[in-house]
Design a protein around this nucleic acid. Structure first.
Length: 272
DNA sequence: CGGACAACCTGGCGGC
DNA sequence: TGCCGCCAGGTTGTCC
């Protein structure tokens, strides 16, 4: 679930509880979620390291430590939160990692579907190095976007989901951005006029900013680090609204499958 | 390069 | 209530 706005919200919520803390122990019960290194190396290397900062790159959460980087990808159902040691972890049956902090609290990683991944490496570039630009960075200008999309010719929906094209967009915000831009998800990149390119650029930034403002979308599994729900889902125009009226024109929203992903759009507002 | 599809896992939900 | 099939916010690898 977690896309850029959800991951950004998690990072902002964890910064306070984690910054300056030192890991003193770690426990895990599903080695398959640990992408790198081995569980033994992980348990040896992490304790003693202090959290210097926490940031986001695409949908990855990066925790800068004394001499390496702890990286977590939530994939579909991951949750990350800090609680006192005394909070029973059995209350959340999907906790697969517990990171013991030096202040009587634990960082916990919960993930029902076990798609999420944890990495600990001194050099994170092999994990995040091929990601496309950060869509909300100042360096991601309309000019840069137009130069980038001019080299592509594929279908818009899969292109927006391609993390090498732009980092952080997922199925929800791809559908929302295309609706806002008035572009059909089956349009191709090489069919866009300059004006349509500009609309897509503005729309991508607007829906992501709005997602952050509403602190993410809690359709199913996503929660903020304090356990509460985001409210971005209250403001969707098409995502998950099959057969409901388009808020702009009233036409029933349609759902099709594009590139294997459920895709929602307004057949009136989004032209081919 | 691009599209189609399987794989990794489990839970929630609608239908019967 | 129970069981079944379908759907799910992500990513990677394979095959054509």
């Amino acid at each position: 679930m977690p896309e850029l706005p959800e991951v950004e919200t998690v990072v902002r919520g964890l910064r306070g509880p984690l910054k300056g803390r030192t890991f003193i122990d770690v426990w895990l019960d599903w080695p398959g979620s640990l992408a790198f290194p081995t569980p033994n190396e992980f348990r040896t290397q992490l304790p003693g390291q202090t959290v210097l900062g926490i940031r986001r790159r695409g949908k990855y959460i990066l925790c800068d430590l004394t001499d390496s980087v702890l990286i977590i990808h939530l994939k579909m159902t991951g949750r990350l939160y800090v609680v006192p040691d005394t909070a029973r972890h059995e209350a959340d049956r999907w906790v697969h990692f517990r990171f013991q902090l030096d202040n009587g609290h634990q960082l916990r990683f919960s993930d029902p579907r076990k798609f999420g991944r944890v990495y600990l490496t001194p050099e994170p570039d092999w994990i995040i190095g091929k990601l496309g630009p950060e869509p909300l960075d100042d360096s991601f200008t309309l000019d840069a976007f137009q130069r980038q999309i001019a080299r592509r010719k594929g279908t818009l929906k899969p292109l927006l989901l391609n993390q090498r094209f732009i980092a952080g967009i997922g199925n929800i915000y791809a559908d929302e951005a295309l609706h806002r831009a008035g572009l059909h998800p089956l349009r191709t990149a090489d069919s866009l006029t300059e004006d349509e390119q500009a609309r897509l650029y503005e729309s991508i930034r607007a829906v992501l900013r709005q997602g952050i403002q509403y602190e993410g979308a809690s359709i199913n599994w996503y929660r903020k680090p304090d356990g509460s729900k985001g409210e971005s889902q209250e403001h969707f125009r098409v995502y998950g609204r099959t057969d409901a009226p388009c808020p702009v024109c009233g036409t029933p929203v349609r759902r099709i499958v594009v590139g294997g992903r459920g895709t929602h759009f307004c057949p009136t507002c989004q032209t081919r």
